[in-house]
Design a protein around this nucleic acid. Structure first.
Length: 439
DNA sequence: TGGGGTTAT
DNA sequence: ATAACCC
């Protein structure tokens, strides 16, 4: 019954969206607390990708160029954030913490999570109903200052949701030292939109009656999560730019321009409707490492960069414990027009004899993979001709668990219950299980 | 515009 | 393999 609610019914869901405040900057401030009272930016190449609130007060914006940022604020402290390792690690700690509340946690980037708390809410509701609901009170803001009606069970559910969201934020702060926003609503779209209404480090619940106020507060269709750059351009060519334009557009016109799937989805989004489920992310589907640069124009340079990316990745893969079946090389060629659009990639299966070597570490897995990657490179670039590459990226995907960690083996159960949920810890734990307990 | 990720076609 | 989306 409760299972069916969380999985399928659109009526009673309670979703919370958790959005960490300026995540990379927070991680850097935890790493070096002296940065806390100072304006801080995190730099990748010549961009300030994010900054703390001290810096925002002084006019620094996300994705501002380093030149503009220093001009605006000469005392701005910059730390390099090109290596995502520390952010990735803390990001997964946040997801794991949220998974203690509900297994239905979906990651969105490194700093956002959706949690479906429908079941937890139903359980608490059952407990509360025994001694009356009169003392139930909201945590944080109510969107649009809407008044609460305790006779309305959806109001009660969302209010219980606001209490759970507050617990999540408290736990994140106590255990990880992180602050963030939360939005509570009846679907993913609305929870995400409402989480941003009071920032930073605050939370907001949306009651159903204010749904239209929220969605119509967006000043352009581009602000709707799910309507991206391309779709926006095509809609603008149809003369559609406001939320109201999209709501009232005839479906036939949209279907003709975008196809039935996209048309139906975005028109529902424009009405605040989103029936997509919170899909548990689980372990990552792929591992990639990339580097961008002004110019790379010789095979020797390419090989050197690929070796660097690869050694980094092999470390991460080894740590995860699963083995990839597919390897991909992505490049970006220099061009004056379209500078950050033109990526191309080639991928191929990893030969089984190389996959085997991943676990053991005794054989050199780097050089055969570099050879494969250079072949993929030559499929895209004629190295006899001059070339100008501005980005290289290596990606491992199609990850499979170790043979020992299949269902039915002890490894399977150990991985599922271990807080670090990786095949690596599974192997370590298996090895430490005394023989008489192993079966 | 970085350095990542995901799903759909 | 690419194209779209997300951060």
């Amino acid at each position: 019954m409760a299972r069916a609610l969380a999985a399928g019914s659109t009526a009673h869901r309670v979703i919370v969206h958790i959005d960490l405040d300026c995540f990379y900057a927070q991680v850097e401030m935890i790493h070096n607390p002296e940065l806390r009272e100072k304006p801080l930016g995190v730099q990748q190449k010549y961009l300030v990708v994010t900054c703390n609130y001290e810096a925002r007060k002084l006019g620094i914006k996300k994705l501002m160029s380093v030149r503009d940022a220093k001009e605006k604020c000469p005392q701005l402290i910059l730390v390099n954030g090109e290596d995502l390792t520390p952010y990735r690690e803390i990001s997964y700690k946040v997801t794991e913490l949220l998974e203690e509340f509900s297994p239905l946690v979906e990651r969105l980037g490194f700093d956002e999570n959706f949690v479906d708390i429908t079941e937890m809410v139903e359980k608490k509701l059952g407990q509360l109903q025994r001694d009356g609901l009169s003392k139930v009170s909201v945590c944080g803001h109510v969107y649009n200052d809407q008044s609460i009606c305790l006779q309305d069970m959806m109001h009660v559910r969302l209010i219980i949701g606001s209490q759970i969201a507050a617990e999540m934020r408290e736990t994140m702060h106590n255990r990880l030292g992180l602050t963030g926003c939360a939005g509570v609503a009846s679907n993913k779209l609305l929870s995400k939109l409402v989480s941003g209404t009071f920032k930073p480090n605050q939370q907001t619940v949306l009651l159903p009656e204010s749904c239209h106020h929220l969605i119509e507060s967006l000043d352009h269709i581009r602000k709707v999560p799910g309507i991206g750059f391309k779709t926006t351009k095509r809609l603008e060519l149809l003369g559609l730019s406001s939320i109201r334009d999209l709501q009232t557009c005839s479906p036939e016109i949209l279907v003709k321009e975008l196809g039935v799937a996209v048309a139906e989805r975005i028109q529902k989004l424009s009405c605040g409707e989103d029936d997509s489920l919170v899909t548990p992310s689980g372990p990552p589907q792929s591992f990639s490492d990339e580097d961008s640069f002004k110019k790379c124009s010789s095979e020797v340079e390419v090989k050197k960069k690929i070796e660097e990316l690869l050694t980094n990745l092999l470390d991460r893969i080894h740590n995860d414990g699963r083995k990839p079946r597919t390897i991909r090389l992505t490049i970006r060629q220099f061009s004056l027009t379209n500078k950050w659009f033109n990526r191309e990639s080639r991928q191929c299966p990893i030969p089984p004899h190389i996959i085997q070597k991943f676990g053991t570490g005794t054989y050199d897995v780097v050089s055969p993979l570099v050879d494969i990657l250079m072949k993929l490179f030559r499929k895209m670039i004629n190295v006899e001709m001059p070339f100008h590459i501005t980005l290289l990226s290596v990606c491992f995907s199609n990850l499979k668990a170790l043979p020992s960690c299949t269902r039915g083996s002890i490894g399977f159960y150990l991985t599922r219950t271990s807080s670090h949920a990786s095949a690596r810890t599974c192997i370590q734990e298996m090895e430490s299980v005394p023989q008489d307990q192993a079966h």
